[in-house]
Each structure stands twice: as C-alpha cells, then as structure tokens.
Amino acid sequence: MVINLRKLPDKKYIMPGNAACPGCPETMGLRYVKMALGDNVVLVIPAGCSSVIQGISPYSGINAPILNIVFAAAASAATGMKAAFEAMGKDDVHVVVWAGDGGTGDIGFQALSGAAERDEDIIYICVDNEAYMNTGIQRSSLTPYGAWTTTTWKGKKEHKKNIPMILISHGVKYVATASVGYPTDFIEKLQRASKIKGFRYIHLLAPCPVGWRFDPALTAKVAQLAVETGLFPLYEYINGEFKLSPIAKRYKDPSKRKPIIEYLKLQGRYRHLLDKPEEIKKIEEYIENTWKLIETLEESFAPGKDRGKKIFDAL
C-alpha cells in the first residue's frame, strides 16, 4: 500500500487554535487517525494532554465526536459505546480510544486488559509520550530507563513497560507499533486495523518537546530517530503473524542503526547521563535485547506458517 500525500483528505481534523503546545505530537497523531479512518469515528479520551488540547467548551480543537472519560475507564467506555452502536444497527462506527501512556499502561491498564481479553470490537491507540506530561512530566511505567522526570530527578531506574507485547499475549488480533515520525506507516496500519473485527491495539510513539526537553521543531525528527537508532522497532502483529514494518526492517542489522547518542543528545531529559558511558551502555543493551525479542517473535509468529495461531490455540 502506497499512500499519495496529495490524495489524503485535506479536512481540518485538528482545528487550529487549540490548546496543544507548539510541536505537539498528539495533534499530529490525531490528524492521521482521522485521515485514515474518515468521519465514521467516535473518540474516547481519558484524562491526559488530549483532554486539554481540545480547548475551552463550547468549542473543541479536535474535529471528532468525543466522549471524554475518567482516567481509568477509556477501554470500558469504548466497549459500551460499541455495544450501543451495534444494538442500534450502526455496526460500521469505529470506536477509537486515544489514551496516553499513563492512561494505558498504568491507571487504565486494568480496563484495557479486560477489553482486550473480551476481544471488544474497538481500536485502542496508546499515544505514548513516555510520562505524565499533562500534570508536568512525572514518570509512568512507560518512561524509559535513565530519563529525567519531575519524579525521577536522577533518571528513571527501570526500563519501559512493554505494552504491545503484553497485548500480543492477550491473544488479540491486531497489535502494531507506530511513530508520529512516519505518518504514512501509521495511516496504513490504521487502515489495515480498521478492516479487522475485534480488539486492535496501536502503540504510537509521540515525542513531547516539553517533557523530553527538545526544540519543538524536532518532534518528527526525534520520532524518526527513535526508529533509526533501533530503540523503537516498528512492527505489526496480525492474527498470529508478526512482521517488521518496511521502514524498520533495515535496523535489524545493528550496523545500519544510528548511534543512540544521536537520539539522546537532542533531549534534555537525558542530559545528566550523556557523560556516563555505563548508563548509555545500559540503553544500548536494552536495544540489543529488544531486537533479540523481535527475532524470536519473527521466528515464532512467521507469516504463512500459522505458528502463532497454533501457539495461542495450544494455550
């Protein structure tokens, strides 16, 4: 699938004059969601930046019907909405959760896990900016190792929780990772996901200039570097088949990856460890381990071999 930029809809899916910070990755991502899925969409948004980005009532800066909902309940509210649309014969409405990393991996995790286990027919997008940005940059379970936040002044001591892998373990039909640095890849994934019935999960990396401490002009660039350094592999898992996304394939080869320092040095949140080689080594090891896991998944869930399906059938 090749996307022609000129053919993407030029509607104001994000209304200018909203409350997002300059260079916000979330408004970028929301535009792509609507470009991919069109107007037959309702969004469910738990507490987070995207609840504020909408701006002040009676206006909203996100051009979509939205049910804002309490922090821990996004996947559940979406479940109910989908059930209602089905009861009313409106099966074609896409109910999309748009939740941050805290709303996904921490406080909203229980509801997410429940909805995934029940295979609810919703699309769940985690827009991952790797901390509680809306409350002022506090660590979440998805904050990466070493990152400064206002609750980890000397850097976080634990690695990032791997939510997409946890979702794969739920046996859902569709799990993908994406980055706002690669919009057409994200749009393609959304379009593929939209054709599948059941629970679909997309983990969207969303570098936050305010929380990661970089120049807002570099949002797309940082989002690309996360992929180019091998830190954030892009992949898709569909019905028991795992494959690296075309953009990410080359980074399987460590020599093709850009040095992680190029990614770290752009971000103030890593400033304190730039002169600590042992800390940088830990991040490099994390990348190696990530790719070992990817290789295992590629092997276990190789397309066409039906092995992934068998693995889950056997469980």
Binding site: V42, V44, L67, I69, V70, A72, A73, A75, S76, A77, A78, T79, G80, M81, A83, A84, F85, E86, A87, M88, Q110, A111, S113, G114, E117, R118
Partner: peptide, 27 residues
Amino acid sequence: DAKMVRVESEHSALATVFGAASAGARA
C-alpha cells in the same frame, strides 16, 4: 435482547453502561 458485558471491575461496569447510554442505548 441485550448485550451483556462481563467487565473486570465496577469502575468499568459503570463506564461501560455510561458509554452505551451516551451513544444512545438504554443501559
């Protein structure tokens, strides 16, 4: 003739029926 959602908590139970009601269903 109803959809029964067997959720993982009460927090989700009310959120689910609230979502359904806001989309237009008696819940």
